[in-house]
Amino acid sequence: MSELSLTGVTKAFGGVQVIQGVDLSIEKGEFVVFVGPSGCGKSTLLRMIAGLETTSSGTIHIAGEDVTKAEPYDRHIAMVFQSYALYPHMTVAENMGFALRLQGVAAPERRALVTEAARILQIEPLLDRKPAHLSGGQRQRVAIGRAITRHPKVFLFDEPLSNLDAELRVQTRLEIARLHQALGATMIYVTHDQTEAMTLAHRIVVLRAGRIEQVGRPTDLYDDPDNLFVAGFIGSPKMNFLPVQASGPREITVAGQTLTLALSVPLPTGPLTLGLRPEHLSGEGPQVTLVAEVVEQLGQTSYAHGKIDGTPVIAEVRGHRPQVGEAIPLTLNPSRALVFGADGQRLR
């Protein structure tokens, strides 16, 4: 039985439908990340799971129990907010033990549970401090600690790293991954940062305009996206898209070069889009030349920006550091090329 299941879940604010019939099943112990651009409904969906937003239609089950209309405290969930949401008038220990206090857990047992959570997160020396006397990273740990002490069935994270600086974000991301391994808990994590999604998730749910575009393992979404949106959203720098026409049942022509693709169906007539990731412009295949207009040097690798057939293209260059104006030979590797139809859906 899945730990969490959403069936036909919708949400409307006034006349605006922000979540449009979401079906999703999450297994026990899974780490699932909701990603999507701003306004795609990922936070709303998380808040609906938490019970902080009502569900317009559909059902939400947690551990087999229908919680669609249940109050947040009856859902056995814990949530970590982007703004930490620590109670400023309580100490760290009181913050972490607040849920237990409400459950009527005796003070000594409460203290033991809080200390145990603090030990896991290495914040034991901070237990008697108030949130105002903590750094951003420490506050985030306390917020996570507050969730741990409750031993919830599902952990919900709403963009928890957004307020941290870049270095601390990477560090905390690793800590969350370790924490998930240590606890083996079911976690749902919302982010707009696809690097966080790729590094943390067992499965990624890509959302757009209140709909699920694709659900899958990070590598599946990266290698085998279902549509243009997912292909463009997952991966950094994003995938190059070149407008093309079919020149045969399985052939397309780009920049005067013909690519033969291994497709199970013949290509339709009409406009198509060829997708090639910046790091996949090498290997075996027809060659084209990119004149570097801008070069981003990242040390071990470089990104050259230029145009192919008038379309902007980014190419990853390894082995040497290209200069602006340099003609860089690229390979249109058919085994890496993805083709999308006029409706944006992938042609396989």
């Binding site: 019970g51 902080l52 109050e71 947040p72 949401a85 607040f98 507050r146």
Partner: peptide, 18 residues
């Protein structure tokens, strides 16, 4: 006051009066 404080308390198990 940040709305998240109320929401955090509700998730922590507090009824409205709590």
């Amino acid at each position: 006051l940040p709305r998240e404080l109320t929401e955090a308390a509700r998730i922590d198990g507090a009824r409205f009066w709590q």
